[in-house]
């Protein structure tokens, strides 16, 4: 029941993101989507990840989006740059086919729900997994962040000299 309500909210907010004409409204829908997902994370006993989702995604990433929206200003094409009419139906059909493929692949092997171990999803357990078995992916994430920082600084610095 909880999942139905929260999932409907998440899907509705995602539809709002892709259909709102004003980019600021898209950002607001995205905040609602991220909040609904954080609530779903809570129902899956992932408290720490729900908190991180709110802090990083709904906080830092949204601020980044809002900064760029306000720096760009209202676009000359005030319609929020929706696709031309002839492109919407093929995209919807592709989405339906894609969804069908995902469901066929994903739904036929669903395990029975197990009992929750104590401390599952708490900060110590996430930290133990992150710095224990998952240490290599964690370190590679640091490398990816370094690459992202260098590329962003390069892009932002180069445009200052025309």
């Amino acid at each position: 029941m909880t999942l139905a309500v929260l999932g409907a909210a998440a899907v509705a907010a995602a539809l709002g993101v892709i259909s709102a004409r004003n980019p600021v409204h898209c950002v607001l829908w995205l905040i609602a989507h991220l909040a609904a997902l954080a609530a779903i994370f809570l129902t899956l006993s992932a408290e720490f990840l729900a908190l991180i989702q709110i802090l990083v995604n709904a906080g830092a990433v949204i601020v980044l989006f809002l900064f760029v929206v306000s720096l760009l200003g209202p676009s000359k094409e005030a319609e929020g740059l929706l696709a031309r009419r002839g492109e919407v139906w093929p995209a919807l059909m592709a989405g339906v086919v894609f969804l069908g493929a995902l469901l066929v692949m994903g739904l036929h092997q669903a395990p029975a729900p197990g009992s929750v171990p104590s401390g599952f999803g708490s900060v110590p357990s996430v930290g133990n997994a992150l710095f224990g078995p998952q240490l290599l992916p964690f370190e590679l994430t640091a490398l990816a962040l370094l690459v992202a920082i260098v590329s962003v600084v390069t892009l932002a610095g180069r445009s200052r000299q025309p």
Binding site: L3, L15, A83, P90, L103, G106
Partner: peptide, 28 residues
Amino acid sequence: AYVALSAVLFAVGGVGLLVRRDPLVMIM
């Protein structure tokens, strides 16, 4: 149910990527 919800959200994001022409909304 979670797999279905995740698939629906992924498909919605993919349709948004195809339908919109504003790069900001595509990144969203």
